[in-house]
Design a protein around this nucleic acid. Structure first.
Length: 265
DNA sequence: ATGCCTTGTACAACAAGA
């Protein structure tokens, strides 16, 4: 099973790019972020035509997440990250797909920092830590996939100097990430490619794509059960080089679910 | 220190992204 995460940066404007990627790479599950669209204009029919069922949670102008599945339909588990009923930003969607729990998340950017947006980022991350702990203890096979807006280490960015004050590199953001790994989760890309500079985002400024000046901020974290199923992980960088591309590239894992305990081979 | 570029909203110019 191939599970991917892709920050599309506007699903209406990005639909041709999204459809081309789905057709070429055929992910079984695709977690999308930054739909930037209300629920009513989500391109359900076009995606259905391409062979994908969808769950989505939109919002006007900003945020918005979706889970696409090929073959079986995803069964929605929750549409909000627990812990703050007053949080109205569409950043979390969780579903069961073929016996796996898929959490699609869009962690707040947090800039400028310090300030209220950075406070929101950290409090959102605290809520995620709480919920991740519950998911871990459930012992279900879980993948948490999305745009985490965290550059885990200085190895995950082309040059940390000019980003030192950015919310994505702050020690507080990285400490939350480390605490998550401390719960036991596997950072799939790093597990399989420990020595390789791998990026998932290249901003639109300063010809950063052309110079490969990227950041690794889109991540897939695997629970214990799923980490033993991990066969391959990568980034579909060709998508970033297409005309009219998102500033993120799809990031994915290939899992051999036959290795799950209790499953027929 | 700021803009760089892009999207959405709405139709000018700003908010937000990272």
């Amino acid at each position: 099973m191939k599970i991917a995460t892709f920050n599309v940066n506007g699903i209406k404007s990005r639909l041709p790019n999204l459809l081309e990627w789905l057709q070429r790479e055929q992910p079984d599950v695709a977690c999308l972020q930054e739909l930037k669209a209300l629920d009513g204009v989500f391109p359900q029919a076009e995606l259905r035509e391409a062979g994908y069922h969808a769950l989505w949670k939109g919002q006007r102008s900003w945020n918005g997440v979706a889970i696409l599945t090929r073959g079986g339909e995803a069964v929605e588990i929750r549409r909000e990250l627990p812990g703050d009923p007053g949080d109205e930003q569409s950043r979390y969607l969780e579903a069961a797909v073929d016996g796996i729990v898929v959490a699609c998340l869009y962690l707040p950017n947090g800039n400028p920092q310090p300030g209220p947006k950075f406070d929101y980022k950290l409090s959102w991350f605290e809520r995620l830590l709480q919920h991740a702990q519950a998911l871990w203890r459930s012992r279900h096979p879980v993948v948490m996939a999305g745009d985490w807006n965290v550059v885990p280490t200085d190895f995950d960015i082309y040059n940390p100097r000019s980003w030192r004050k950015d919310a994505l590199l702050q020690p507080e953001s990285r400490a939350c990430w480390e605490r998550l790994l401390g719960q036991g989760w596997t950072d799939a890309i790093r597990k399989l490619h420990p020595q390789e500079a791998i990026y998932t985002f290249w901003d639109y400024f300063r010809q950063h794509w052309e110079k490969n000046s990227g950041l690794r901020i889109d991540h897939l974290l695997l629970s214990d059960e799923l980490s033993s199923c991990l066969q391959a992980a990568g980034v579909d960088t060709w998508v970033r080089g297409q005309p009219h591309a998102s500033d993120h590239a799809p990031t994915w894992v290939q899992l051999d679910l036959g290795r799950l305990a209790g499953r027929p081979r």
